[in-house]
Amino acid sequence: MQPQHIIFLILGTVMVALLIWAPGMEYSIEESTLSFYRAIDELPAGSLVLVGADFDVENRAEILPQMEAILRHLMEPDRDLRIISISMWDQGPMVMDVFLRRIGDELGRTYGVDYVNLGYAPGVHTMIRLISHDFRGAFVRDFSGTPLDELPIMDEAGGILDIPMIVDFADRESGPIIYLEQVKTQNPQIKVLASINAASFPPLEPYLQSGQVDGAVVGLKGAAEYEELMGMEGLGKRGMDAQSVGQVLVMALIIAGNVVALIIARRKKGRVVG
């Protein structure tokens, strides 16, 4: 057994133990998550919301718990917000479709009237520019193949510049940044909210600090925070124990590795001097 096998074994054992035991560690709610939540809360009833599905399924661990909590917030029947979902990358729409339809059915929302999934269109920056004034610039049919003219929600949708809020589920910082560059620069009134995996958040943080991004839900912790705000139980809250202890373990291993390396280096130096 190699040293790395021992590390993997310890890490796996600790995380499995915490998943079974689940002591329920406490955590605080970040200001960026609160801003995200409040922005949706303050949106007038009947407003349209653009939901971006800009992620690959490999990052589902963080994005799906976020989506579960945030889509439930967006689709609450008394809030009466209407959702148009699009994607700049190809894998997100199929996951988004499953989530929208399941939560929509549970909360009594109607496909084509209260929400629609237009799917993926290529072009990234150019595609977003194309739909500035009319979604039909890049989308002819929805994700299931229904022509846009047969979907009542699209009658009043206009283009992306007519929508007051963009909620982007992304596993790369370029997703929300493209919305800032191509949409918010044309209409600064539009709020851009980012629901993003932890690895992609550091490059986005300057945009949050400058106020260009109006709120951010970050990683599994962000999902747990949003579940707390929504008063629901989900994978985010459940994963906080395992994630926190796993991270402490990695920190301990980094420190231990450096201490051992230092000791070995000193011994070698001692031998050379001696």
Binding site: V16, L19, A61, A199, P203, L220
Partner: peptide, 21 residues
């Protein structure tokens, strides 16, 4: 950035372990 990547990878491991269990 490295810290954030570790956080993300821990989430991936957690999700796969949760799925298996």
């Amino acid at each position: 950035r490295f810290g954030a990547v570790v956080m993300s990878r821990m989430s991936l491991l957690y999700e796969r372990l949760y799925f298996l269990l």
